[in-house]
């Protein structure tokens, strides 16, 4: 389990993270979302032990991360802008990873290498951006980490490769119970892979919940009333809009509660539709003074 407690990080005069706390349960796939400059990459660099926090603690399974190689041996990290030693090829990087990470599996590496179309002997700097990302995935998965931290992991990959990467990731999580923390702008993709979501804005964590809980507690209803009417005050409406006679209501309630409440209003017709992650964020936080729309692709 990754535990971030009251972390503050300042770059000269800019407070990038402000007393932030976050918990990633073991085996969870945690999606970190937020607009540009929210502090996602800073938080990830703190969790991977690159940055030293000004205040607060970061632990993985109770052990501090910063300057602790024993813990870092269990972490694989893919940054948004991947780095390889200049003029190194994949084989050289494999040797380095194998030397640094005791858990590195050459067998897994070669097994996955056959899935990607990468030349092991070609200098990585000659790879395209997408191929460099693939190489990073290849090396990181072959580490067989306990914690996998990914910063914008599928940026630059084509749709087929994106699917393949997510598939590999999910397979690893399913087989080995890897804890995954990933940041992305793309909520639609996160919805497919994440089971926990945290939203970051201006260095603070606005919201942190299991995705299922979010989806269970917010429903979208399409309702047709016989005539226009006021809704009762006790109905937990987050958002209301109308298109002709059809009204769309976003309710903070479970499916059963929403169904019972709407039936009591005796409408001509009503239907409950599941919300996307994107819609949940918009409606949950739309009223607040946050640039939630910036998060969305």
């Amino acid at each position: 389990m990754i535990e971030v407690r009251n972390i503050t990080k300042t770059f000269r005069t800019v407070r990038a993270l402000d007393n932030l706390s976050l918990t990633v349960p073991s085996g969870a796939v945690y999606g970190l979302v937020g607009p540009n400059g929210a502090g996602k990459s800073t938080l990830i660099r703190l969790i991977t032990g690159i940055f030293r926090p000004d205040e607060g603690t970061i632990t993985i399974d109770g052990q501090p991360v910063y300057e602790n190689p024993a813990v870092k041996r269990g972490i694989a990290y893919i940054p948004d802008d991947v780095f390889y030693f200049p003029s190194a090829n994949l084989a050289e990087m494999r040797r380095f990873y194998a030397g640094v990470y005791p858990s590195f599996s050459n067998e897994l590496y070669y097994k996955m290498l056959s899935l990607f179309t990468l030349n092991e002997r070609m200098p990585i700097r000659r790879f395209s951006k997408g191929m460099q990302k693939q190489a990073a995935f290849l090396l990181s998965i072959a580490v067989r980490p306990e914690v996998l931290i990914l910063d914008e992991p599928v940026d630059g990959l084509d749709p087929v490769m994106r699917r393949q990467v997510w598939s590999l990731l999910m397979q690893d999580v399913a087989e080995r119970g890897t804890t995954v923390l990933l940041s992305s702008h793309n909520l639609r993709e996160l919805e497919d892979v994440c089971d926990h979501v945290g939203i970051l804005h201006q260095g603070k964590l606005l919201l942190e919940r299991p995705l299922s809980e979010l989806q269970e507690n917010v429903v979208k209803a399409q309702v047709v009333f016989r005539e226009a009417r006021e809704l009762p005050n006790d109905l937990p409406v987050i958002h209301r809009s109308a298109n002709g006679k059809i009204e769309t209501l976003i309710l903070r309630a479970s499916q059963e509660q929403a169904s019972a409440a709407l039936a009591a209003l005796n409408p001509v017709f009503y239907d409950l539709v599941p919300l996307t992650l994107e819609e949940i964020f918009v409606y949950e936080l739309g009223g607040a003074d946050y640039a939630v729309k910036d998060i969305l692709v």
Binding site: R45, E67, P69, K72, I75, Y77, P79, F83, V100
Partner: peptide
């Protein structure tokens, strides 16, 4: 920045 971040993400502490 890229190389500094990557090298410090590896399980090798600073003194080493």
């Amino acid at each position: 920045t890229r190389s500094a971040y990557m090298m410090h993400a590896f399980p090798i502490n600073r003194s080493t």
